[in-house]
Design a protein around this nucleic acid. Structure first.
Lengths: 162, 162
DNA sequence: GATCTCATGTAATTAGTTACATGATTCG
DNA sequence: CGAATCATGTAACTAATTACATGAGATC
């Protein structure tokens, strides 16, 4: 993100919320220490760039940093994939519930993905998306949430007929 | 899982790998301390049940534990949903890559989901699935991985035509 | 007799969140 | 002048993984 021109910790946090949150989140408490780690590793450079009396660290990528970014993007290692889906975990144990409670469980799963679908549709219509890959990953997120909402609709019918 | 009759830490770990890993994982290092926490909270009970000289703790759920399970399954709180998808995060930054490297990125995303699809198809054909909801969540995982593999196939064509 | 599975645990480490704390600038 | 936004940071905590360590029972 520094390579793209998001030059402050604050800006990076905002960009994560706007762009990658649904498939890779991070919180402020981790970003500032990480920028300092990257600095001491020589992958980014800092410059003090206060706005009036407000201190402000302006980060930019170094040649080494660009090389490291490229290495990460092209290395052959298995990319990490993890999902933590509490609604589905609950469904896994739904056998102990009454039919009504089971349906409620699936409805909540549906509501979650329907809401995210709505938000993403909005964003994809509004935004200009100067970056093709930013748009593409947003479309992935939309596609996934649509699929999951549909799955929940079908599951509701199955769960109700018990 | 204790409520279902998985009575040792070892058995619980095996059941997680078999059943919930793709949407909720856990590792041994966390399971044994958690069982002790649940015991001291009165939600499960332990009994020593050695096999020969091998010590063995046999856990069973208590009435309190059953009540807590029911509360968790029916409470109105927003269920946690988190995804950590490194392949997609890489794609998000694919603008700095050559067309060939971009295609390679999408192919790896495809390979990941295609492999998981294969594994799940196998499991769903073999297994008897005495629990309806265990099967249902496995079908969710299969459906998602199929969808993601298809998405990657479509994305590959888009990325290649640059 | 070797290897695999069953079985339990700890220690060290890593990752990450949440809450707190501060304060200037900008805009209406 | 008040509220929202920009901006940085720390401390405490929670969660979780990985690696290490051990050893018996079962199977081939």
């Amino acid at each position: 993100m520094v390579a793209e021109g998001h030059s402050t910790g604050y800006a990076i946090k905002a960009e994560i919320e706007r762009s990658t949150r649904l498939f890779w989140g991070a919180s402020v408490g981790g970003i500032y220490p990480e920028l300092r780690r990257l600095t001491s590793a020589g992958l980014v450079a800092v410059r003090d760039d206060p706005r009036g009396l407000t201190r402000r660290h302006c980060y930019s990528i170094t040649d080494e940093g660009r090389a490291a970014l490229h290495d990460w993007l092209t290395d052959g290692s298995e990319p990490l994939f993890e999902m933590r889906n509490e609604a589905l975990l609950r469904l896994r144990f739904a056998a102990v519930l009454s039919p009504e409670d089971r349906v409620a469980l699936v409805r909540r799963l549906h509501a979650l993905h329907a809401e995210r679908t709505r938000l993403l549709e909005e964003r994809l219509q509004e935004d200009a998306f100067d970056d093709v890959y930013d748009r593409m990953t947003a479309e992935y997120a939309l596609g996934f949430n649509r699929w999951a909402a549909d799955w929940a609709t079908a599951a509701e019918a199955r769960v109700a007929s018990d």
